[in-house]
Simulated scan of single mutants.
Amino acid sequence: MISFVDLQKKITKLYPKVLQAHVEQKSIFPLIVPFDKTFPKELSQWHDLIEPIIAHSREHHQFGYSIAYTQLHMRKHGVQTVIKEISFDNEAQLIGYLNKQEEYASFTSNVAKILQNYPVLKTWMSNNTSSILEYELDWDSLLAVVSYFVSNASPGIFIREIPVPVHTKFIEQHKAVLYELLNEVLPPAAIQQQYSGVSQFELRFGLKIIPARIRIRLLDATFARYYNNGMTDIEAPVDELANLEWPLQKVIVLENKKNFENAEVFLTLPNMESTAVIFGSGKAVSLLSKLKWLAPIPILYWGDIDAEGFEMLHQLRILFPQTASFCMDEETYQAFKEFEVKGSGAKERTLDLLTATEKKLYQQCCTKNMRLEQERIAHPFMLELLRKHINHFNA
């Protein structure tokens, strides 16, 4: 025998079916919730169970369910009239019972509006009725954005330049649902198929993105005066930096996963002849591929002693095989292992471009799930190892 609480849960689960049926213009009524034939040991328990069920039926309320009864023969209690099932004869009964008249009216209005503009979205709506409800106040704006892209495939402007009467953050805040809608509505030729996922929304639908930037500091003031009007600290779009023609002798790459967390190191490295340091925040390695002028220059790389740090070192060596690492060795780890913290749990990968000693430490990072962050390395210790590598380059 089902309780009234469990019955409520079953009835609530009927609502999405009604929404989907409305989109598909299907008739699904009457909707029936069957009851099992189990019976409590005591007759009084049975009466306690059915009393609230009967009290909420159409016999007592304008909106409610009909109850169908049946006869049940029981050894202990004899013949008893029990509930066989409850049913809703039409959507008005169910919607009214759930007290969702206003929400349902908004839903049906939005469905009609969407279908009128884009019949192709019918299947999407059937599979995403919850989204129609979630954005019930936004559909005029969402459809305006969709219409713009339909009329202006790959517009080549920034997202906030789109001439649609919505507030400036609307599209950014609704990328997830717009991503789905545009994939359904736009022809394949209007979509850059090589880009996928909401994180690549702009690239997929032909919008401009904020150019990726790299920060470089020249450690040689004389070099900076001659080649860069004295400026030593430069941050610029990577495409512009790709055109540099600096005759550098060495480049140091500092990589942080977080946003410039180790900026003090970047700003306090000592003067070094014809040397520059590149500062990244978890993405510089992937951007350096555009800096072709790095190809003949000795490169020193410093990242965290963890799985990701060695993976980025490997990635950098794919681009520039001459890259050496510093402060990513057993000596550094042993000196500061008391500051080791838990890593990301990354699984070991095949990194053929690591040296034997680097690979050993990388495997340890993976098996022990450990991380020794750059910020834990004492500044004088780092500078001493850096000088040793620089002297090796100069020898």
Rank of each mutant, 00 (worst) to 15 (best):
C366V: 03
A153Q: 12
N229T: 08
E103M: 12
T275A: 05
Y333E: 07
Q334S: 11
P211W: 04
N229M: 10
F266A: 01
Q374P: 06
Y69P: 00
F339Q: 14
Y195R: 01
N271Y: 10
A55C: 06
N117M: 06
N229D: 13
V265P: 04
F279Y: 15
Y69H: 12
G206Y: 06
Q25A: 09
G303Q: 00
N262C: 11
I162V: 15
H22F: 15
H314R: 09
R371S: 13
M370D: 07
L31F: 01
I278C: 04
M74K: 14
W46V: 04
K76N: 07
T367Q: 15
E24S: 09
N271D: 11
N391T: 07
K169N: 07
A221N: 04
L19Y: 03
G343M: 08
F266L: 01
L372D: 00
E51G: 00
F39C: 07
H392K: 14
R160Q: 05
T232W: 03
A112V: 00
Q192Y: 09
A242H: 09
Q116M: 06
K292L: 12
P30C: 07
S274A: 15
P296V: 12
A189V: 08
L49Q: 12
Y104G: 10
G96N: 12
L288I: 06
E91N: 03
P247N: 10
